[in-house]
Simulated assay, not measured.
Amino acid sequence: MFIMEVPIWILAINAAFFGMFGGLFEPARDSLLPKIIQTEQLTRANSLIQGAIQVALFSGPLLAGLLISIINYHILLIFISLLLGIAGLGVLFIRVTHGTSMVKEQKDISFIKQLKEGFVYTWEKPLLRALFTITVITNLFISGPLMMGLPVFVEGVLKGNSLDYSFVQGGFTFGMIAGSIIISIININRNRGAYALYLIAFQGLGMLLFSQVQIIEIAIPVIILIGMLNPAINIPLISMVQTYTDRNKIGRVMSLIRTGSLGLIPLSYAITSFLLGIGIKINIIMAWSSLPLLVSVVILFVRFPIIRKADG
């Protein structure tokens, strides 16, 4: 069978475009949702989307591995491209009738000016500024120590193997799926800001507890709990942003929020790598990363009372 090697630079370009368009997709999706969903159903709709994403992230690699063992990966990539194209065509059938004049006016404004207006708009709104701050804090102090440090923690602290890591990682994914389903069923529409702050503090305590665990049997239920708290915090916050942002600004605001969250993940990874490189143990890093979460909840609760009063 003829096998053609693909130069690494082609793969790099492909990955860059995939990441770039993925970055455009999420703010566009989140800004479209409040235009086609009733306000009181936003939390439930976001829960369903996040739950579907987690299921896809869990089942996708398994399905891909199965298909690659059956068919050629070139055919698989073409098939995936067709599925993405069909999904994109489906968006064309969504009709948003209101706000058409605003869209036409915004087309004449440069991208840089729109981005600047979005940042100014977000920073001038106390509630949006507080929500942006929460997003930055949670991603900075959780992403690296938890996601990057998890295999190191399983091997170095729990003294586990690859199977143990799969159980712990699977527990985190299961927790996120379960959390999304629970939030969808509850469909919280009141006191979402205060509720998110309490759960951030609870997540900080969960991280602190997880850092002290020594056996796999306790680590799995704790990581499931932390996974459940992740969508339980993010979904109400996203729904609040969609609820309290003007319709003609929501795309820019969601872009800033996504940039603030996704942009800090590599920084969190880098800080965690540096601390591990100078000899600090991962359980110590996890324990210390939980403290800023607890302190920030107190500061946000006092400094931004609008968070706990919103939806009241």
Rank of each mutant, 00 (worst) to 15 (best):
R192P: 05
M207N: 01
V253Y: 15
M228L: 15
I278K: 01
G260I: 05
G193H: 09
I200L: 10
S239C: 03
L205M: 14
Y195L: 09
I278E: 00
A232Q: 01
R190H: 10
Q203V: 05
L163H: 15
S211A: 14
L197A: 10
P221W: 15
G227A: 13
S273N: 06
L199P: 01
I250Y: 08
L237Q: 10
L205P: 01
K249R: 09
V253T: 07
L208A: 15
N187F: 01
F174L: 07
P231N: 11
I223H: 11
S255Q: 07
S261Y: 04
T245I: 04
P231M: 05
E217S: 10
R247K: 15
R258C: 00
F274E: 00
R192M: 11
L229D: 01
S273W: 03
A201F: 15
L275D: 02
L262K: 11
G206C: 10
A232Y: 08
S180Q: 10
R190Q: 13
F202K: 14
L225T: 11
L229E: 02
I224K: 10
G179T: 06
G279Q: 08
G260K: 15
G160F: 09
R258N: 13
I216N: 00
V213H: 00
A270K: 10
L205H: 00
D246F: 14
P236G: 12
F210Y: 06
A178S: 15
R252C: 12
G175I: 12
I182R: 05
K249W: 03
T243C: 03
P236A: 13
I200P: 01
Q169M: 02
G175E: 09
G160H: 03
R190D: 04
G251W: 02
L163Q: 06
M228N: 04
I186T: 07
S268E: 07
L205W: 00
A178T: 13
D164T: 06
A270P: 00
L275H: 05
Y198F: 11
V222C: 11
I218M: 15
T245E: 03
Q214W: 05
I216P: 00
I215Q: 04
I271P: 00
Q212T: 03
Y195C: 09
L262Q: 06
A219S: 08
L267W: 05
F167S: 15
I238Q: 14
Q212G: 04
S166H: 07
G204L: 14
F274A: 04
L256M: 13
M254S: 14
I233Q: 07
T243F: 02
I224N: 05
I226A: 07
A219H: 01
N234V: 13
Q203W: 11
L197W: 07
G227Y: 01
D246Y: 04
L209V: 15
G179V: 06
L208Y: 08
Q214Y: 03
T272K: 10
L256P: 13
L276S: 07
S180I: 04
V222G: 02
Q203S: 05
I182V: 10
F174P: 03
G277Q: 13
A194R: 12
I238H: 03
S166L: 13
L264V: 08
N234E: 09
I182W: 11
P236K: 13
L276N: 04
L205A: 12
M254T: 08
L209K: 00
S166W: 10
G179L: 02
Q242R: 09
